[in-house]
Design a protein around this nucleic acid. Structure first.
Length: 419
RNA sequence: GGGGGAAUGUCCCGAGUGGCAAAGGGGGCGGACUGUAAAUCCGCUGCUGUAAUGGCUUCGUAGGUUCGAGUCCUACUUCCCCCA
């Protein structure tokens, strides 16, 4: 999809070399614009959860590259669009979120961007805006007359997101049907307010983005471009971001730096190079050398990846702590004070606790039955010794060095610390 | 407004038509093999609890028939299709 001839602009060259590009509208024109001087580009983020997850990281890194190559990123918080709900890639309508939920989600998400982008008033400083500021101001008739005239239902029905719903005989409400108009209006609004001429997003956003591009070109007769990033999946075809503990959240209070580090450390061999290019700032020649490491030496590259990715999000100190804890736990089989801990009342421990109950309380299993199954399957370890009897009572006699080490499988470890 | 169909284990898809804790698959989890990888093989995947073929709660919602209902009946809810 991208042009065969090499790009002139540092921006597109970087994106292409690091694997950020899936599709671009008018590649030569955009390249020329980005080569001539700073451009402004945006990506929208809906506030459907209290934290962004690894899936969003791709977009955030794309904005980071934009800024690194001398351009201005805009982060659009979807305060308004979240009220509508993006139907793309969803089989069914989601329950609508309340204004309070949306606002608290946005507040919780905000900090993440500051880790990756430099905000401020300078020409290439990032800014953050909320599309609720304009979307919620329109009257219904006003909106229809102003923007509705530029969209034909014929065309809207042809978009994948809509077509799929119809083909699967799944309902799509009129509310959701309007999502693409809102997103297009966002782009137009940003073009007018900030001279923004590029919208980026995941490949599933292509339809929505192209609509915005066309709206601007039609209404304001200004150049506008769209760029999408490839769908992110692992080499073995899994959708990226889901793992042992569910979604890989970016907020530290929802997923600890240690777990975040572990997530990257567990990358498949075949993905290491790609992920290094996408999710770290390491120079490309270094990455090329790392990904060529033979056999089990590739694990060194995974550590580099884990360190670099964790440093970006949580800082170098947290990354170092996570790396130490991991090395201790996996390579030296020793206890580290930095492993996830679970505090347990000392009296209760002295009185004795059923192992299954403790495993549940420590968050290693969802129910006692699950804990039992885990034990029967040989996946439960107490102080590194396999324990098949989940009914066993645990008490102060099980303390080793003042703590009890519980493990579910090889990777989930919790240190029980009496208080 | 009329007619026909659908809703299943709360991760998803999907069999089931009077004896069912409910086939099968995907996903997930655990084990073996490894390198905290992939692939492969094996086990598990409602809760609770054992010495146990135990108890409890599940098939859109609410009632009913029956010794017994996901399965039959009635009403309701939501969705899909056709006709108007």
């Amino acid at each position: 999809m991208s042009a065969d001839k090499p790009f002139k602009s540092e921006f597109l060259k970087t994106l292409q070399a690091r694997g950020h590009i899936h599709q671009v509208t008018h590649p030569e024109e955009l390249d020329t614009a980005a080569h001539a001087g700073p451009i402004t580009a945006y990506i929208g983020f809906d506030a459907t959860a209290a934290s962004l997850h690894v899936g969003h990281l791709f977009s955030i890194m794309t904005l980071r590259r934009l800024q690194q190559t001398g351009h201005k990123p805009i982060v659009v918080m979807g305060g308004g669009t979240t009220k509508i709900g993006d139907p793309t890639d969803k089989d069914q309508s989601r329950p609508l979120l309340s204004d309070e939920q949306i606002n608290s989600n946005m507040a919780a998400i905000k900090g993440t961007f500051e880790k990756f982008l430099a905000f401020g008033d300078g020409p290439t400083d990032a800014i953050m805006v909320n599309n609720d500021d304009w979307l919620s101001r329109f009257g219904y008739v006003e909106f229809l007359r102003k923007y509705g005239v530029h969209f034909t239902v014929n065309r809207m029905l042809a978009f994948d997101s809509v077509k799929q719903r119809l083909e699967r005989e799944q309902p799509m409400t009129f509310l959701e049907f309007n999502y693409m108009l809102m997103q297009s209006v966002d782009f137009l609004e940003l073009e007018r307010r900030y001279g923004c001429l590029l919208q980026m997003g995941g490949s599933d956003q292509w339809g929505n983005i192209v609509n915005g591009v066309e709206l601007i070109r039609r209404v304001d007769h200004k150049p506008a471009f769209g760029l999408t990033t490839p769908l992110l999946s692992t080499a073995s075809g899994q959708k990226m971001g889901k793992t042992v503990g569910g979604a890989v959240w970016l907020n530290a209070d929802m997923r600890s730096p240690y777990d975040y580090w572990q997530f990257w450390r567990n990358t498949e061999d075949a993905d290491v190079g790609r992920f290094l290019r996408l999710f770290t700032d390491l120079p490309l020649d270094e990455i090329a050398a790392l990904e060529k490491l033979p056999g089990s030496q590739i694990n060194e590259a995974k550590k580099v990846l884990a360190n670099a990715a964790t440093t970006l999000l949580h800082g170098a100190d947290s990354a170092a702590v996570a790396a130490d804890a991991s090395r201790a736990a996996f390579e030296e089989k020793a206890l580290s004070a930095d492993l996830p801990t679970f505090e347990f009342p000392r009296q209760d421990l002295e009185a004795g606790v059923q192992l299954a109950a403790l495993v549940v309380d420590a968050g290693l299993a969802a129910s006692r039955s699950e804990a039992r199954r885990l034990a029967q399957g040989g996946g439960l370890r107490v102080n590194d010794a396999q324990e098949s009897d989940a009914n066993r009572m645990i008490d102060a006699a099980d303390l080793v060095g003042g703590v009890i080490k519980l493990a579910a499988g090889k990777k989930k470890i919790v240190v029980v610390r009496p208080t």
